[in-house]
Design a protein around this nucleic acid. Structure first.
Length: 778
DNA sequence: CTGGAGGATCTTTTT
DNA sequence: GATCCTCCAG
């Protein structure tokens, strides 16, 4: 952070606040919710005033501490529910906290309006003060797909070669900047160069401007714009600072810079901020998370009390030992020693196999054996590094008829048909939602292809209006050919009709009506492809899921913020998921396949982030092992088919880092597996002094050098203003003027109706056109 | 304007 | 192997 950092408010002085009388009184009695906590947990709960950092190792009762702490604040009457800000990363975590507090405090938690994810709370605050950041309170929240399409338009408008500079890349840069709390004007010059020969920052600015016109915010904006709101409006900030007497942050190790700045601003007044996290479980660096936030906590919040939770209630000593041994190889960590008083249990097993297929087969056999012994399938999980690894397991499970569930997986909301359905609903809720309009205007086919859309775009851009408004104008003219015009008119009228239904009709019935009348359902019914029935099911599911909400707006807010759809999981199934999505979960038995160099640690992590990438991968391994309560089974294959190409692989360096005492090597009968040397690592020979000498690390170093050489001096070019501001109300043309029209040629203006002109064209006859599409020709 | 064929490019993780 | 994209023929 530079000196000019607008958020740098200096350090927070320590403040001695007397504990309230009621707090002291209740401490003396020791309320029921405090019983059963260990000393450290209780310390974390009762340290109410001033900043507190709770370093909660895996399985140490973190959620319990969090919820109990909230209950404690409430029970001691130190704050009302509405005065507590409690933020989590996932909706699941928020939900769980809500439920558990409900159980502790007894009953309704409706009164916790500020418990939620960073993004949902950011959205809530932004909606209250939208006008201060150039939005309306009903702004749309864009997802990544919308974002990409929007960027594509901007990139094209700027004449940049899309092949060379993909929109996704720009999206990820913008995302990165937003994560770091950087508005377009603050993007460091060096950063902007990476995209489009220095056009990165200008495009970012254009994108932000476009978002404002669309009355939309992307994910990053929910935080960044909130920050800007606070920064530019001290009274608004002061109001929230005053309001939040207590702040609670879950998974603090996953916060990014923007979130950190946001929290720090809000904590200025009362300074009762309690952050809970585990630096050893920080696995979202690629998404902008700064482990540094947690490592630096005591400096950021002087006088902070740090509580370590080290008693693990989940895993056996062997599992903890293996995980602990592994994680000590990391250099940047605060350091904790987990211990448990559980019985020793079984060692972590290690198995080398021939290829991925054998790995899937052997693991399936293990699972069937466990099943025969009476283990529940839902207590078994397979945690993979990358989702492509799932396929082999799925194939095998389907073959065996073994019930399984993919956790996380391709998300419901991301499916094309679901997004289409939602686009219809968005358009009805908000006619100016251009991205929704574009998405479904020709779905099902209405004969409104590229050309029609281009005309609309041109008009919309020239007049600074939305596509829907442009469509309304165009249908009264002859800019489009007859069939297209008639279809567009029908479309506009259809949307208007639905819109008129909104006040009277329930949103569920409305959704059904829309999907039916639009012909969207029919489109899939007529589709003979294999996945059509599934898509129809998903559409039904969309409608069904709407009854959790009071109205359309509530539903739309939900789907844009909540990625997953709740599925009832009563059936006993094996869990299959990535290591990332396993965080926070626990299972009796955990399978950890694919521990091979290049896959885990993943080559790309090493290439892109060097040491810190490797350390993050190692934390991922740590997270994986510590998910296991009784059994952890690691495996690696000597051959793996990646991309339809066979590659031979060597065991992961993490295998070598596992402490021998806690690991049992299983020699398979069929298997090959060249891991007899386990314990005397090849890395010992090659790189004696450091963990960071591996091939990946060297490549990363080389890449870093190459990257530095690639940088060029900034080459900022003026960016054409995309949106002209003209007054759509009145036309500057007068009757009798001679004009030129791209399609119809020369003519004389006969009549004027607002910005619609009736022109007598020399060759094409009398036509109604929009003034934007003609030019004066004296 | 649509639909199909063929080509390129990828597959780390996601609120 | 899949998906996304572009191009070309109807």
């Amino acid at each position: 952070m530079s000196d000019s950092d607008p958020f740098d408010l200096g350090s927070i002085p320590e403040e001695e606040t007397a504990r309230s009388l009621s707090a002291q009184a209740s401490a003396a009695v020791r309320p029921p919710y405090l019983t059963g906590l260990n000393d450290n947990q209780r310390e974390a709960v009762e340290a109410m005033n001033g900043p507190v950092l709770v370093l909660a190792g895996a399985g140490t009762g973190k959620t319990r501490v969090l919820t109990t702490r909230l209950a404690h604040v409430l029970a001691t009457r130190n704050a009302w529910p509405s005065q507590i800000l409690a933020v989590t990363f996932t909706n699941k975590a928020a939900r769980e906290m809500q439920n558990r507090i409900g159980m502790l405090v007894g009953g309704v938690v409706e009164g916790m309006p500020w418990l939620g994810t960073f993004h949902s709370i950011g959205a809530k605050i932004l909606r209250r003060h939208a006008e201060l950041v150039g939005l309306r309170s009903d702004f749309t929240i864009l997802d990544m797909d919308d974002q990409n399409r929007l960027l594509k338009q901007l990139i094209r408008a700027d004449g940049i070669d899309e092949k060379r500079w993909p929109a996704r890349q720009l999206a990820s840069y913008i995302d990165g900047w937003k994560n770091r709390g950087l508005t377009p004007d603050k993007v460091p010059a060096g950063d902007a160069e990476h995209y489009g020969n220095g056009k990165g920052a200008t495009l970012y600015a254009a994108y932000q401007a476009r978002l404002k016109i669309l009355n939309a915010a992307d994910f990053g904006d929910l935080l960044l714009e909130c920050l800007r709101l606070f920064q530019e409006n001290p009274t608004v900030l002061a109001d929230y600072q005053e309001r939040f007497k207590y702040m609670l942050v879950d998974e603090y190790q996953d916060t990014n810079v923007a979130q950190y700045l946001w929290l720090r601003l809000l904590a200025q007044k009362h300074k009762n901020i309690c952050c809970v996290g585990d630096d050893d479980q920080s696995i979202y660096g690629w998404r902008g998370a700064e482990v540094d936030n947690i490592l630096r906590f005591e400096k950021d919040f002087p006088g902070a009390k740090v509580v370590r939770l080290e008693q693990n209630y989940r895993s056996t000593p062997h599992i903890l030992g293996a995980a602990a041994g592994l994680i000590t190889a990391n250099e940047s960590r605060l350091g904790k020693t987990l211990w448990t008083d559980l019985n020793e249990g079984e060692k972590v097993t290690l198995r080398g196999l021939w290829d991925g297929e054998e790995e899937a087969r052997v693991i399936s056999e293990d699972i069937e054996q466990l099943q025969r012994k009476g283990h529940l399938l839902r207590e078994i999980a397979i945690l993979v590094r990358a989702s492509f690894q799932m396929r082999e397991f799925e194939d095998r499970f389907i073959n065996l008829g073994l019930p399984y569930r993919v956790v996380g997986g391709p998300r419901f909301y991301e499916r094309m048909e679901v997004r289409d359905a939602n686009a219809y609903l968005r358009l009805v809720a908000q006619a100016d939602d251009d991205l929704a309009f574009e998405r479904i205007v020709n779905k099902p086919k209405r004969g409104l292809g590229d050309k029609a859309l281009q005309t609309l775009h041109q008009l919309a851009r020239a007049q600074g209006i939305s596509l829907m408004r442009a469509a309304r104008l165009v249908v009264d003219t002859e800019e489009l050919r007859q069939p297209a015009r008639r279809n567009l008119k029908a479309f506009v009228e259809m949307v208007d009709r639905w819109r008129a239904l909104v006040p009277g009709m329930g949103h569920i019935e409305l959704a059904e009506t829309i999907l039916d009348e639009s012909g969207y359902t029919e489109m899939w019914q007529n589709d003979r492809s294999a996945d059509a029935p599934g898509r129809l099911d998903n559409l039904k599911e969309v409608v069904r899921s709407m009854d959790h909400f009071e109205n359309l707006a509530g539903y739309l807010e939900h789907i844009s913020l909540v990625m997953e759809i709740e599925q009832n999981d009563t059936i006993d199934k094996v869990n299959l998921m990535t290591l990332h999505s396993s965080k926070g979960l626990e299972f009796d038995t955990v399978f950890l396949p694919g521990w091979e160099e290049g896959l885990f640690p993943h080559q790309r992590s090493l290439d892109e982030s060097g040491i810190s990438g490797l350390e993050e991968e190692r934390r991922l391994a740590y997270v994986g092992i510590t998910r296991a309560k009784k059994n952890a089974r690691i495996s690696f294959a000597s051959n793996r088919r990646i991309h339809n190409l066979w590659q031979s692989s060597i065991p992961s360096r993490f295998v070598d880092e596992l402490p021998k005492d806690h690991v049992e090597v299983i020699q398979g009968d069929t298997s090959f597996g060249n891991y007899a040397e386990f314990g005397q690592s090849r890395f010992d020979h090659e790189f004696t002094q450091s963990n960071y000498g591996g091939p990946g690390w060297q490549r990363a170093q080389a890449n870093a050098r190459a990257g530095a050489m690639k940088t060029r001096p900034p080459n900022i070019e003026a960016h054409a203003e995309l949106i002209a501001t003209s007054d759509p109300a009145a036309s500057s043309y007068e009757a009798g003027e001679r004009v030129f029209h791209q399609k119809f040629g020369y003519g004389l203006v006969a009549e004027i109706d607002g910005n619609k002109l009736t022109v007598e064209f020399e060759h094409s006859g009398r036509k109604k056109v929009i003034d934007t599409f003609v030019e004066r020709h004296d």
